[in-house]
Amino acid sequence: MNQSSSNLYTMPSVNESRKYIYTDEELIGHFQNGDENAYVELVRRYKDRLINFVFQYVGDYEQSEDIVQDTMVKLYIKKHYYKEIAKFSTWIYTIAKNLANTELRKRKRRKITQLSHMSREEKQIDLPAIQPETGQEVQNEFAHKLIRNAIQQLPEHFKTVIILRDVQELSYDEISNIVDVPLGTVKSRINRARIQLQSELQELK
């Protein structure tokens, strides 16, 4: 994997605006033909997007980074499994989602103490006490932690769609392809997930 020569595929600067920008689908095509620079560019494009998704899903940074690494390794090994009938983003998100699901199931099997297994009292102990005189930054941090904890309380099928829609801002079509359910079901799930998130937040507050 030669990183130094990978700038063939990187985004052009303002002065280089005429330079051709490869789409994800073109890059995976180049990679399938043996060009590893295309792989490096795909990793650069997706590593942060994927960790953002996986982190909200799993709730642990180190595990999230491991999952994203696994996703990229899988992309490297199984590159020929991608067919250009779907968007590359859909394919890579599906891999990451499946790996994150597997990790959550492993975690449940190992019976690692998890927030969802704790009582309401234990959950509340984890949250920082908010003081009236604390600054805006701390209040925001508290709000973020609260909403992340509320996401963790959701069932897996609600958690996936709400993260993909409201955090990753993917389209309904893309989500439908990633979770492999019809569009109508995705819309309905997102709606119900939002209602349940609100009730979780009320309980946590």
Binding site: D48, Y61, S64, I147, E169
Partner: peptide, 17 residues
């Protein structure tokens, strides 16, 4: 409340590798 939640989800700090 749901509208606020969606805004908060959109504004969650982005995690980087």
């Amino acid at each position: 409340n749901m509208k606020n939640n969606i805004n908060e989800l959109n504004e969650l700090p982005k995690v980087k590798t």
